[in-house]
């Protein structure tokens, strides 16, 4: 236990090492729905100390604490959105793997759609030009 703590402090500040173990803990869920909610929330919340892992995948001590907190909140009957807000209030938008739709993420969410539209319009124009070639 101590050793992992040491390694972790190293991981955060000195090395960019790997947390090699995965997060395995049996939690006393009351229902399957609770378990599914827990898993999906743990997968969309980022472990802030890790290299790019979700709470579900990380064995860092902070991730363990946050999973406990997540579990407690689900037992408390809090909604998914309340739980996300709880995390964002403390760690910022950074913890959400699914960024909220806001003015600064407009390009992220809308970009692919706009590109697709441009691509389709361009294709339509190309085909229209090419059709003339066919008729002549």
């Amino acid at each position: 236990m101590k050793l992992r703590f040491l390694c972790w402090a190293w991981c955060v500040w000195i090395l960019s090492g790997h947390v090699l173990a995965s997060a395995i803990e049996p939690l006393p869920f009351r229902s399957e729905l609770e378990e599914i909610r827990f898993k999906s929330l743990a997968e969309e919340i980022r472990c802030t100390v890790c290299q790019n892992q979700s709470l579900a995948d990380s064995d860092a001590p902070l991730a363990q604490d946050l999973r406990q907190e997540l579990f407690a909140m689900i037992q408390d009957g809090r909604s998914d959105q309340e739980i996300r807000n709880f995390m964002v209030e403390r760690y910022g938008d950074f913890v959400l793997y699914k960024p909220p739709l806001a003015s600064h993420t407009l390009l992220l969410w809308g970009g692919p759609g706009v590109l697709l539209l441009i691509g389709l319009v361009a294709s339509w124009r190309v085909v229209r030009q090419r059709r003339r070639l066919l008729q002549s």
Binding site: E43, Y97, L108
Partner: peptide, 24 residues
């Protein structure tokens, strides 16, 4: 490419830090 680099763009513009992950 956009999703991979977007957190970088946001940060450099001073609009905060975000993560773009599997749900996106």
């Amino acid at each position: 490419l956009l999703g991979t680099l977007y957190p970088l763009v946001i940060d450099l513009m001073g609009w905060g830090q975000i993560s773009v992950g599997p749900p996106y």
